[in-house]
Design a protein around this nucleic acid. Structure first.
Ligand SMILES: [Zn+2]
Ligand SMILES: [Zn+2]
Ligand SMILES: [Zn+2]
Ligand SMILES: [Zn+2]
Lengths: 159, 159
DNA sequence: CTCCTATTTGTTATATTATAACATACCACT
DNA sequence: AGTGGTATGTTATAATATAACAAATAGGAG
């Protein structure tokens, strides 16, 4: 991830979002797209109020500034569609930029750098399989799995 | 977990806590033990303010009732020692009652029932190994791993 | 034992994260 | 235009967590 053309990440993810919303009959409104674009701007997780601040900075005069429910509604919408993920261990959110052509419902493994905030998302195939098998062995029915690895990324270790 | 003598869970965990604190030169004070005992009372996760309410209910007259920092300090202490775990996806805490004779530092996999709140903790050996290998493959150094499975336990499915 | 220091606890206030509740606006379809 | 569903605006508040500082307590050095 150190060097890559991030415009491609944005391009692809935006297009996927449009298609997914269309296919599910959901509306990717201006507000929702704005929140998504804020998160797409980098592979970092942001808190809801950080997003809110950005929205307020951008906002045109002549109308009230956005309030917390505005951002939380957009986040809920994007979470439902799987376009973003929440980092439960730090109450923050990041845009999903993995290739979802094969796994629309993927188990995300997030590798979060505690030094720079970079989030590296990987899709867990074998890991998910193992968890579901283990759960089944004692009759537990899994709805949702959270896997978060906190640590230091390669770039920050080199510093 | 459906039927078991929970007194044994409490007994073992309490003894382990005493030994661990002693071996690390930390003091398991009355307050800390109280919080631990509240969490040991069941295999369920509780919020910090639920614990606080219990502490207040129990508290003897003649002195001020405990405040949030009191419970958060005790929780931090117990988390540091690995005697309890936090459910990051619901901001709650549960006592670790797995056998730690072999893995003092274990990667906890929590299976949390969204119907009854029961938490089934398993130790991830293979899963941890896989995650660390995957992280190493792109130079990420893991400090801490969070694995939480939300779903419905066998008992609640039967209802 | 007495002083000293580090740790723990008490207390007040406040920061941070998230949602409830209700009004208004918008959009698609008739 | 009328109607019903979805989306947004707005105000207030709930739920979770920590900062800051004062007081008490516990153990060791002298
Ligand atoms: Zn990128
Ligand atoms: Zn993803
Ligand atoms: Zn038990
Ligand atoms: Zn454990």
């Amino acid at each position: 991830m150190a060097e890559h053309n991030h415009n491609i990440c944005i391009e692809k993810s935006t297009q996927f979002a449009q298609e997914l919303a269309l296919s599910k009959g959901k509306k990717l409104t201006a507000q929702r797209l704005l929140v998504l674009n804020i998160l797409l701007s980098d592979h970092k997780a942001m808190g809801a109020y950080d997003i809110l601040d950005k929205m307020r900075d951008m906002h045109v005069a002549g109308q009230g500034k956005p309030q917390p429910p505005t951002v939380y509604r957009a986040l809920d919408f994007l979470l439902d569609l799987g376009l973003i993920h929440k980092v439960e261990s730090q109450n923050s959110f990041y845009a999903c930029m993995v290739d979802r052509s094969q796994d629309e419902h993927h188990l995300a493994q997030a590798f979060i750098c505690d030094a720079c905030g970079h989030v590296d998302e990987k899709i867990a195939r074998r890991g998910a399989q193992n968890l579901f098998e283990k759960a089944a062995s004692f009759g537990f029915k899994i709805d949702k799995v959270i896997v978060e690895c906190r640590g230091i990324c390669a770039t920050c270790q080199a510093i």
